[in-house]
């Protein structure tokens, strides 16, 4: 008798299908995903205009166009939020839907299972955010705006690889907390806060500056700042090296950590 096993590629393909169907069936959500970077931009610029002058902002950040930078930063922010929410919240949403026991019973290590779920998010979430930012970038900067947004997409993908690993670890740890609500929902704003998404990291308290060193989003923001900078791409290469290193470190960490979580859940269960 021929026995066929579910392979990693099969699960990734299924996750892609599920991801695309979700957006196809929730077009209002897709629309919301498109306009969120603009809402963030409007909130920041609204507050900024009330309290001061955009030229002061551009000068202090060293960027050419404050509007373009805020759109780019909002794109990075929304991509990060989507990935953290979708990947770290994956086990929780399955728990709410009652499908988590089936997920645990899939004959595949939990780390692999969760990593496979993160791949569509890593590739498609930034694509949605970047597609949203593209019209404004092209309108303000023309061809340079297009190149900037395309480069930003590559930077976000690179940054989301370690972020996905980190989110997978959180998704596993959520199984051990014995609470039903989304206790990981503050993870995304915390990462954005310490990453200096709309401001330089140096204005933060020292302890938060220290934390930001191990947060991948910080380096994606550094790349976005370099791309929008008036002084050249000084931070670019350091950020790329840091992200590459973190992509390996966080994704390798998922295996031992989630093996422990999986063993615990199989014995003690989850509420």
């Amino acid at each position: 008798m021929k026995v066929s096993y579910v392979g990693f590629i099969d699960v990734v393909r299924a996750e892609f299908y599920s991801y695309i169907r979700f957006y196809k069936n929730n077009r209002a959500f897709l629309f919301a995903a498109f306009i969120w970077p603009y809402l963030m931009m409007m909130l920041l610029l609204g507050l900024g205009y009330l309290f001061g002058d955009p030229r002061v902002y551009a000068e202090r950040l060293g960027v050419r166009s404050p509007v373009l930078y805020v759109v780019s930063a909002s794109t990075v922010a929304m991509s990060s939020v989507f990935i953290i929410d979708e990947v770290a919240g994956y086990t929780l949403y399955n728990r709410w839907n009652g499908t988590l026991p089936y997920l645990i019973l899939v004959p595949m290590p939990l780390s692999k299972r969760l990593l496979s779920a993160s791949i569509p998010s890593v590739l498609l979430s930034p694509a949605i955010s970047v597609a949203s930012a593209l019209p404004v970038a092209v309108y303000i900067e023309g061809l340079r705006g297009f190149v900037l947004v395309a480069s930003l997409y590559a930077a976000i993908i690179l940054g989301m690889l370690p972020l996905a690993g980190l989110s997978v670890i959180v998704a596993g740890l959520v199984l051990t907390t014995r609470e039903e609500s989304n206790i990981a929902s503050s993870l995304a704003p915390f990462m954005l806060l310490v990453s200096g998404v709309f401001y330089p990291v140096t204005i933060l308290p020292r302890v938060l500056q220290g934390v930001s060193v191990v947060v991948p989003v910080r380096y994606v923001v550094d790349i976005a700042k370099s791309l929008a900078s008036t002084t050249g791409a000084g931070q670019l290469y350091a950020a790329i090296y840091a992200l590459t290193l973190m992509a390996f470190a966080y994704n390798l960490l998922t295996v031992p950590l989630l093996s422990g979580v999986e063993a615990r859940v199989r014995i003690h269960g989850f509420e």
């Binding site: 920041l44 001061g52 902002y57 929902s185 503050s186 915390f190 954005l192 806060l193 709309f198």
Partner: peptide
């Protein structure tokens, strides 16, 4: 308790991000 702590900091983290950005517009 975890939900409580999460709820306490979640919205404020978001707001702080925008506040710190808005501060840079001021002299």
């Amino acid at each position: 308790k975890y939900s409580f702590i999460n709820g306490s900091i979640n919205t404020m983290l978001w707001v702080t991000i925008f506040l710190l950005g808005a501060i840079l517009f001021a002299k």
